[in-house]
Design a binder for these strands. Structure first.
Length: 894
DNA sequence: GCGGATCAG
DNA sequence: ATGGCTGATCCGC
């Protein structure tokens, strides 16, 4: 295929990755060439720039390979690919969901706006928030000069010598964010906060209720003029210096009748509701927000950008309107498509969504399945309608940049400090993980990561450092006698047990106590799964415990291909609620329903005012399902920790396992429990060799790999064979550095033995390793629940049950539990709204940069409108695009 | 499981 | 004075 390389659209010879990114709002109509020239002059010659250059060349080579591949595609291949694309298109089209009203709200230049609000002298001046080395955001004055987020302050100063750089005040932003979120909650109590200044809401239900509201409930007071003092209450202060960035089309202006007294009445439409929301935000915080209203998250996000700042845009829920909107939309505007993906697609002649659609067949031949599926969905204007946070966290890390550091001892010291920090944060969340990763960036900005997976979970400073130190040592040894010249070091822990065998129970308890929704498998299944199914690995059994499995859902990763082959449509799988009921109402569902009903009774005014009150200070009261003691004034994390303790038995019997302690200590200290780690000697050599900045070889093995169709569907001729040739593995199990004691195990068999010791020990704790892992119940608990034990004792009423039939027994427990729950309901009605957005966690060293804020519903289980068969989490093309943490693509397409 | 890369905020 | 931090995911080994 021809697909001319449309060169770079960013301008002559500029690094596309360095040049000004005018994607952001406020960048229209400025002198790009001049700005780029300044940026280049300030950058040229720097180590950073050299590295960017190198990276860009790698991207270019990648594009080169892709183009070469494209050139070999035959007409026939293209045709059959087109057929495939058409088929999938039809399926996706059938599953198109237009019934939800999704809103994306984005505060305008958030940090900068807050600073301007609080320091009026900054209002009319170009300013940015951040530091000399990095800016977080800038105000609109500064943007005219090309000053933008993620730009170092010293460069910005060259663009705009008068720029004022204000330091970050995270505490303040968090506080403001909280105020805003209180408003969000009134439109969707389960809103999804993606960062301090951004959120998604599903306002469908709100809009229905809103229809029956009297005007009075849609009326909001304008702040009266007067004292400059800003109050938290909705009324008072001055309208004129209200907002640091007061734009003409502020919600007030376009709102319906605005009587002279200072009250504004809003209508019942989606637009009016959102205008009202923005109005209230501005009244409350003196800051403006922009919003997008659309049938799905992807579109809503794009829309919120459309009339920014201080504007909103809606795409009506009609297929044709959506398609019209999408046509000319530059793909770069789509969340998840970054500069690399943009460049790759651009080289195929694709810059708009219409072109993306048009070249679907080609893309299906050039990109991975997940990638082209993702592209196809974008081009159809599809996205997730499920405003829901992803599951639990998968990793935690801390890293720090510093002045060049070459001294090994100093590096070890720093490493330990990082481990200490990380450990503290881990313990705050009660997390333990198995994989320790060290990240190093040398003074040339080259980044390396080295990981080690242990056989048991760790969380303490010493444990983590034991692994990190050796990873670091391996790198130091590698370049010796030269020193490692570092500018950044980081430590990450992943492989949390939470997702494996510890959390499932926790999760079901949380879900149960909170909403009960996704845990629809019910108590019965719960018990039988945990104790009846013995022949599964911990991993499998944990999968079973996953809500997806319990609900009998095809899970989020149902592949489109399967749908294709079964002819199943999204519609069918995505709305289990509307179809025939798969399961009778489970215990959890029932409990949830009852709780909701109780809720209504206790607060009959709720739906009348439409105001869901946030009670951040409410003390929640849970009953531990293990010890049955009521746990008061704890938050959920604490509660979970308590339950964990109870489950592990350590609550009443502090660990005194005798020998096991020694064994564990030994393994961790002496790395005996580590898996044998392969260090890629050859690769490292390649890395080091690049001293002679030869661009070509730098791309490594990739360039030697005819990586043609390896990961694609069997389309091309090369498909089945996979790689054409295979490098002989030169990797040696470099038996790592000795442990701290200097007596590291060198003998693999001994490692294995040690490792095994751990495992059996762990299992041995529970007497029966078949069921020990996923539940971790106390021996007493295990005995009680063991189906082979004729004397089943109800864990609720403690009365022995005269049956060995688990079904019968479970039914009894259900009854007992629901009685308990009903009593609970009488006392603590609102367990279901536990998330307190205020408890943002702060970690690491000095925090100067925007961080995703994982609070709001990190553990907020939310089951409404589950879409079951939606396409898999979309994905980037081969090693190209990817997804942001909190703003991951799959949110848009699940 | 590892390591490099991309993306988001 | 001089180019960040956190988390997630994908791809190819």
């Amino acid at each position: 295929m021809e697909a001319k390389n449309t060169a770079d659209t960013l301008g002559s010879g500029f690094l596309s990755r360095m040049a000004l990114n005018d994607n952001k709002a406020g960048m229209e109509g400025l002198d790009r060439d001049k700005i780029n020239k300044i940026i280049m002059e300030a950058s040229k010659g720097s180590k950073f720039y050299e590295n960017e250059l190198k990276k860009e060349q790698q991207v270019n080579q990648r594009i080169g390979r892709m183009m070469k591949q494209a050139a070999q595609i035959t007409e026939q291949q293209l045709q059959s690919a087109q057929a495939q694309v058409d088929k999938l298109t039809a399926v996706l089209e059938r599953g198109r969901e237009l019934g939800r009203v999704i809103v994306h709200v984005d505060m305008d230049a958030f940090y900068a706006a807050v600073e301007m609000r609080d320091r009026p002298e900054l209002k009319e001046k170009p300013m940015a928030v951040g530091s000399w080395s990095m800016l977080s955001t800038s105000n609109y004055h500064a943007r005219k000069f090309g000053v933008r987020a993620a730009m170092p302050g010293f460069i910005a100063k060259k663009l705009c010598p008068n720029l004022i750089i204000a330091p970050l005040n995270f505490d303040k932003y968090r506080a403001v964010s909280l105020e805003v979120r209180e408003i969000f909650a009134e439109y969707d109590e389960n809103f999804l906060a993606v960062s301090l200044d951004e959120a998604y809401l599903d306002v469908t239900d709100h809009l229905v209720q809103r229809l029956s509201w009297p005007d009075s409930m849609r009326t909001h007071l304008l702040r009266s003029a007067g004292d400059g003092e800003r109050k938290e209450s909705v009324e008072q202060p001055a309208p004129d210096d209200l907002s640091p960035v007061l734009f003409e089309d502020s919600p007030t202006a376009s709102a319906s009748p605005c009587d002279a007294v200072g009250a504004v009445v809003f209508g019942t439409s989606a637009e009016e509701a959102v205008r009202e929301m923005r109005f209230r935000i501005e009244q409350k915080t003196a800051l403006t927000a922009s919003a997008g209203i659309a049938p799905n998250m992807m579109l809503a996000k794009v829309c919120s950008d459309k009339n920014k700042p201080n504007g909103q845009y809606r795409i009506p829920a009609e297929r044709q309107t959506v398609m019209d909107f999408i046509q000319d939309l530059p793909i770069r505007k789509v969340p998840g498509i970054g500069k690399v993906t943009e460049k790759m697609l651009s080289s195929l002649g694709i810059t708009t969504c219409a072109e993306l659609r048009q070249k679907g067949a080609l893309l299906s031949l050039l990109f991975s399945e997940t990638s082209w599926h993702h592209f196809l969905q974008i081009s159809l204007g599809l996205g997730s309608t499920n405003v829901e946070r992803d599951g639990e966290r998968k990793s935690m890390s801390t890293e720090r940049t510093f002045a060049e550091m070459s001294d090994a001892e100093e590096q070890y010291g720093l490493c330990r400090g990082l481990c200490r920090d990380l450990s503290q944060e881990l313990q705050k969340e009660g997390l333990k993980g198995k994989t320790v990763t060290v990240k190093l960036k040398n003074v040339n900005f080259e980044v390396k990561t080295r990981a080690l997976t242990l056989s048991s979970v760790v969380s303490t400073e010493e444990e983590i450092f034991a692994a990190a130190k050796d990873l670091l040592k391996a790198e130091i040894d590698h370049v010796s006698p030269h020193p490692l010249k570092l500018r950044l070091m980081g430590v990450r822990l992943s492989g949390f047990v939470s997702t494996d065998d510890k959390k499932p129970l926790q999760k079901s308890i949380i879900g149960f106590l909170r909403t009960g929704q996704s845990e629809s498998g019910g108590a019965t299944q719960h018990i039988s799964l945990e104790h009846g199914v013995t022949n599964v690995s911990p991993e499998k059994s944990s999968n079973l415990m996953h809500p997806d499995a319990l609900c009998n859902r095809p899970a989020a990763n149902l592949r489109l291909a399967e749908q294709l082959s079964t002819g199943q449509t999204n519609q069918e799988v995505s709305k289990p609620e509307s179809g025939p009921k798969r399961n009778p109402e489970s215990f959890f569902q029932r409990a949830h329903r009852l709780r909701l009903q109780a809720n209504q009774q206790e607060f009959p005014g709720v739906s009348d005012t439409g105001h869901v009150l946030l009670n951040p200070v409410r003390t929640e009261c849970f009953t531990c399902p293990v010890c049955f003691r009521e746990q008061e004034s704890m938050d959920l994390e604490m509660f979970n920790r308590h339950v964990d303790k109870c489950l592990s038995g350590s609550s009443n019997a502090p660990e005194e396992k005798g020998g096991s302690v020694d064994a564990v200590g030994d393994c961790v200290e002496g790395e005996g429990s580590w898996q044998v780690h392969l260090s890629n000697a050859s690769q490292d050599v390649t890395d080091q060799r690049k001293g002679s900045s030869k661009p070509h070889g730098a791309s490594g093995p990739n360039s030697t790999h005819p990586q043609a169709n390896v990961d694609r569907q069997p389309v091309g001729p090369a498909a089945p064979s996979g790689r054409l040739f295979k490098r002989t593995e030169k990797r040696e199990p470099s038996l790592c550095v000795p442990g701290p004691s200097g007596s590291g195990f060198q003998d693999p068999s001994r490692r294995a033995a040690a490792s095994h010791t751990i495992v059996t020990e762990a299992h041995g704790c529970h007497g029966d390793d078949r069921k020990s892992t996923s539940v971790g119940e106390t021996p007493a608990e295990a005995a009680r629940l063991d189906p082979r034990n004729p004397n089943l004792v109800c864990p609720v009423c403690s009365v022995p049950q005269d049956t060995t039939d688990l079904v019968v027994f479970n039914r009894h427990v259900d009854v007992c539990l629901s009685q308990g729950i009903l009593q609970e309901l009488g006392q603590h009605v609102t367990v279901s709204k536990p998330s307190n957005p205020s408890c943002t966690r702060v970690k690491g060293f000095s925090r100067e940069f925007p961080r995703s804020d994982s609070t709001s519903r990190a553990s907020d289980s939310r089951g409404k409108h589950k879409r079951e068969g939606s396409p898999p989490p979309p994905a980037p093309h081969k090693r190209a695009k990817a997804v942001g943490s909190l703003n991951t693509i799959d949110k848009f397409f699940r």
